[in-house]
Nucleic acid binder design. Structure first.
Lengths: 342, 342
DNA sequence: CCATCATGTCAAAGCGCTTTGGAATGGCGC
DNA sequence: GCGCCATTCCAAAGCGCTTTGACATGATGG
């Protein structure tokens, strides 16, 4: 069923049918009702491609997922982010497109997306320092919003980020206040902007407490469970093992916990763990009571908010850019406790 | 840059440019080379919507993610599945579209997708028994493949599934062979076909060993970490607690492990765990040596294979349907051991 | 009673591409 | 020199929609 058929069926011109369905005021309410009923009855929806051709918009948002250098990792937060964004898109009649790409083809992919007119805008994921995507997208004129931020650019752009520096600073201060002086940092990949900020927060808290910064206690990597396990294991086997860990993801934290278990160490008593928690739906930090002491911020909510920001940008491209900084919630769970070895 | 501009620029007709780029033989190689070079130089890619309008294909695959009844859960395997599928799509020049939908609007969403011509085909995720989507899609003529299977339909359709029944039967047999007679099943939602098959495998292994089936030892639910923890905790607090668990997801298994830890029980020694492992990239079952004894099958590989199946179906709609059954690998890790309480 | 105007409707152009049905061009044999 | 193919190219139609500009219609005011 297409417009022509439907209009023939109703004995009305295509113009009127189109206007009736798109809510234009030039159509009488009686006609509109007839048209809408007929459309529903015959399961008519305007052809997306034809509509897009005519309007010049695709009503589709792109998400380019760059496969990490380290191989074939899928960011665990991805599903929840998309769920949040998807809600917003659905509410505004936008489709959501995903493209997976190797890091070397990143620029081409964005160029292509825009040349083909496949999307009206994109969400930039996992920004790096001085991320090349921001000038690129600005240059080719593809609207975008950034999940996170990119230090080292003087471009004006829209972003939404969690105050990672503050979160890790506060968490480290908390551990210091419990008497810990040897704290391991199990960070995300420090090619990514957020991870750098987290380390800064950690370093600054330790520095202000007069503690020394030991490079051996700071690791950076893909935030898998195995990475958490391996990193924590290595640190715990050092001559002066840390009595606490600051961890970048709850998935890593599970690995850290496994490392403790393997050594008969009790978390909270022998070794403390504070983790960042993205509030993943399938890996909630406990139900009513938290499992880990954590800095938490819902990645799903971030997805929803960023989608809204992007749609707004597309609708009013000349509006000023919006920068949003969310503070993480700090919740205290049983995974932390006072330093006890003295 | 569009076709018209590019052809003017080259002093050639649009037809020839289009044919040159699409590899038609009517164009001399010299002309083709010129055209390709110019297209590259000016970053020309045919407009997706116009191309789609003209050809009648969208070169886009839809993934409809039904939000579970239980609320707002995102299936953790989703990211890895999409990563696998995305690889295949990219290789064939297909885009990948995602739609998130509440269970009640499912049928409308598929109908709409096809009426709008938004996608050339869809992947059906998380099939239920007698899943209504299969007759619906067949009726409206939207090509599809199923990740899993749906019992209770006499339709002929293409699917790829893991032999869940066999995997759980084998796993249960293995536990029985270790001397376990009281085995808890922490299953996925039994509205879903795969979970039913898993239970069947479990039941059949216990039955053939002459063990009784205790409904209190079988639970079904969304496979979160918390669910694994809560379910295992409840069973361990029973008067006759199980000495082993069969778990439907590695994420649940982490929750089960947490329940053991909380009770001072040693996994493998006091209580055994066997889990299904979808080989999630960020939650691998250990690096060289497994963490859990597990039945494993890569959901990412499934995504890649299903994407290929769907593309093939779209290209040759009259080809016979393909049914693929993968066997899970059984790996033995430290999470299982002989029954010791006697 | 005519000019004016709001209202509801329509025909046709155009969005950027593919593809059909010709039409030039040049090489070849006779 | 002529007819005949291959080769190479093109003009124009069509995909299904939106939107412009124009046109009936009936109501209104002078």
């Amino acid at each position: 069923m297409n417009l022509k058929e439907l209009s023939h069926l109703l004995g009305i011109s295509q113009t009127t049918v189109s206007r009736a369905l798109n809510g234009y005021p030039e159509v009488s309410e009686a006609t509109r009702a007839r048209v809408v009923a007929a459309a529903q009855a015959h399961n008519y929806s305007p052809n997306t491609r034809a509509q897009g051709l005519a309007t010049g918009h695709s009503r589709c948002i792109g998400h380019v997922i760059s496969v990490n250098d380290s191989g074939e990792m899928v960011n665990p937060i991805f599903g929840d982010f998309m769920a949040g964004a998807g809600e917003t898109y659905a509410a505004h009649g936008y489709d959501m497109m995903m493209t997976r790409v190797g890091a070397q083809d990143e620029a081409d992919t964005y160029r292509n997306l825009q040349a083909r007119g496949a999307v009206d805008g994109v969400v930039v994921h996992a920004p790096r320092t001085s991320d090349a995507r921001l000038p690129l997208l600005t240059e080719i004129g593809l609207p975008f919003v950034v999940h996170g931020r990119s230090t080292g650019t003087d471009l004006d752009y829209s972003w939404l980020d969690v105050n990672n520096r503050r979160a890790f600073q506060d968490a480290a201060r908390y551990l210091v206040s419990l008497g810990h002086s040897c704290i391991g940092l199990i960070n995300g990949q420090e090619t990514l902007d957020f991870a750098i900020r987290r380390r800064e927060g950690y370093v600054s808290a330790l520095t202000e407490a007069g503690l020394s910064i030991d490079p051996a206690l700071m690791v950076s990597g893909e935030m898998t469970e195995e990475y958490g396990f391996a990193s924590a294991s290595a640190m715990l086997d050092m001559p002066d093992p840390p009595s606490a860990f600051l961890v970048s993801s709850i998935i890593c934290a599970v690995g850290v916990r496994r490392a403790l278990d393997g050594r008969g160490l009790k978390q909270g008593a022998d070794v403390s763990i504070v983790t960042f928690d993205d509030c993943l739906s399938y890996f909630a930090n406990g139900a009513e009571t938290p499992v880990f002491t954590a800095m938490q911020s819902s990645v799903r909510a971030a997805g929803a908010a960023l989608a809204q920001m992007l749609i707004d940008r597309i609708n009013t491209p000349d509006a000023p850019h919006i920068q949003t900084l969310w503070e993480a919630d700090f919740v205290i769970g049983p995974s932390t406790g006072p330093y006890t070895k003295d």
